[in-house]
């Protein structure tokens, strides 16, 4: 009896160990839904701010650069901060439910590999802020997509597809940067895609 069950249990345990030691699996689908919602709210606020100038991020910038900077730093800084807090909260909750650690070699590796493209993107966006602010939305989507693709090797591999979609939206966002639909692409990428992916992950892996 034991000899029959032995190999099956061994194999499933081996598979589990291999996955758990090389990938960070505590990412929660709920955090995706939360981040997506926050991003949609941020995009809505930006839409409201730009109304009248009908999207022309460049125009809003030329008209009142100080107000423009202040609004965008407060708005998108707020979105970023809330996203990080929310993501950490739900991920920590899931890790605790599973009895896993939030901070171990897998989460460390995941963060480092996300931080390289994200940090590069942040610096590049800073350059754009003074030269071509209308391209910032596109730039954030593209670098975020690349960060996800890079990170997907160290967590649920589905993140890779999400990254590819973000890059595609980022390219469209850049293509239409001066037409006013760029904010729409940003909202699709950071809002709708996150919520969709959050729901998919939630249904696949649970809370």
């Amino acid at each position: 009896m034991i000899q029959e069950e032995g190999p099956l249990r061994d194999l499933s345990e081996i598979r589990q160990m291999m996955e758990r030691s090389s990938r960070f699996l505590s990412l929660s689908g709920l955090s995706g839904v939360f981040i997506g919602t926050v991003a949609l709210l941020g995009a809505a606020a930006a839409w409201k701010f730009l109304q009248g100038t009908e999207s022309m991020i460049g125009q809003a910038y030329v008209g009142d650069p100080y107000g423009f900077y202040r609004f965008f730093i407060v708005n998108f800084g707020g979105v970023l901060l809330l996203s990080i807090i929310g993501g950490l909260y739900f991920t920590n909750r899931r890790a605790r439910q599973k009895g896993w650690k939030l901070w171990d070699s897998t989460s460390k590796r995941l963060l480092i590999n996300m931080a390289i493209p994200l940090g590069t993107g942040a610096i590049f966006c800073y350059f754009l802020l003074f030269r071509a602010p209308e391209l910032i939305a596109s730039c954030t989507l593209i670098f975020y997509g690349m960060a996800l693709i890079n990170a997907s090797k160290y967590t649920h591999s589905e993140l890779r597809n999400l990254g590819v979609l973000e890059i595609i939206l980022g390219i469209f966002c850049g293509w239409f940067a001066t037409t006013g639909t760029s904010l729409l692409f940003w909202a699709l990428g950071f809002g709708v895609l996150h919520i969709l992916y959050g729901i998919i992950m939630y249904r696949k892996y649970g809370a």
């Binding site: 061994d10 345990e13 081996i14 598979r15 160990m17 291999m18 030691s21």
Partner: peptide, 8 residues
């Protein structure tokens, strides 16, 4: 088994 799985 666990050690080897992790190291693989």
């Amino acid at each position: 088994l666990g050690i080897m799985s992790v190291l693989m």
